[in-house]
């Protein structure tokens, strides 16, 4: 099994090295004439006002949290799906229960308006 990951390891080295190589070549070939106007933040020609790092709405966090819950539960279901053919009816009942709890969470988030984007 580890030999397969040997291939993945070499792939990882190349997948990282190739874009780095591209940037190095571009750095060698490209002109370098920086000036303050060119390097100013792009805001349609208007001077930037205030700090870039403004506070964000809690809404993003809420979506991310609902995502985390669904992501974790789905990942748990993958080994179940692989083994499902070798399992009896109880596996169906248990997974159905699992999915229904997930569904309840979705319905709750929906009813509370956590899924509305304002």
């Amino acid at each position: 099994m580890l030999s397969k990951y040997g291939f993945i390891g070499i792939l990882a080295v190349v997948a990282f090295g190739f874009p780095v190589l591209g940037l190095v070549v571009a750095w060698l070939l490209s002109p370098k004439k920086p000036n303050p106007i060119k390097q100013s933040t792009y805001e349609c020609g208007v001077e930037t006002i205030g700090d870039t790092w403004v506070q964000f709405r809690a809404q993003y966090y809420l979506f991310a949290l609902v995502f985390v819950v669904f992501d974790i539960e789905t990942v748990f279901l993958y080994p179940w799906a692989v083994a499902y053919g070798q399992l009896g009816l109880f596996a169906l009942v248990e997974a159905a229960l699992f999915v229904l709890i997930l569904f309840a969470g979705l319905v709750y988030a929906w009813r509370k308006g956590a899924l509305e984007w304002q």
Partner: peptide
Amino acid sequence: KLLTKEDIIPEG
């Protein structure tokens, strides 16, 4: 063309 373009790193 993209390979030979100047690389601009914005201020800050």
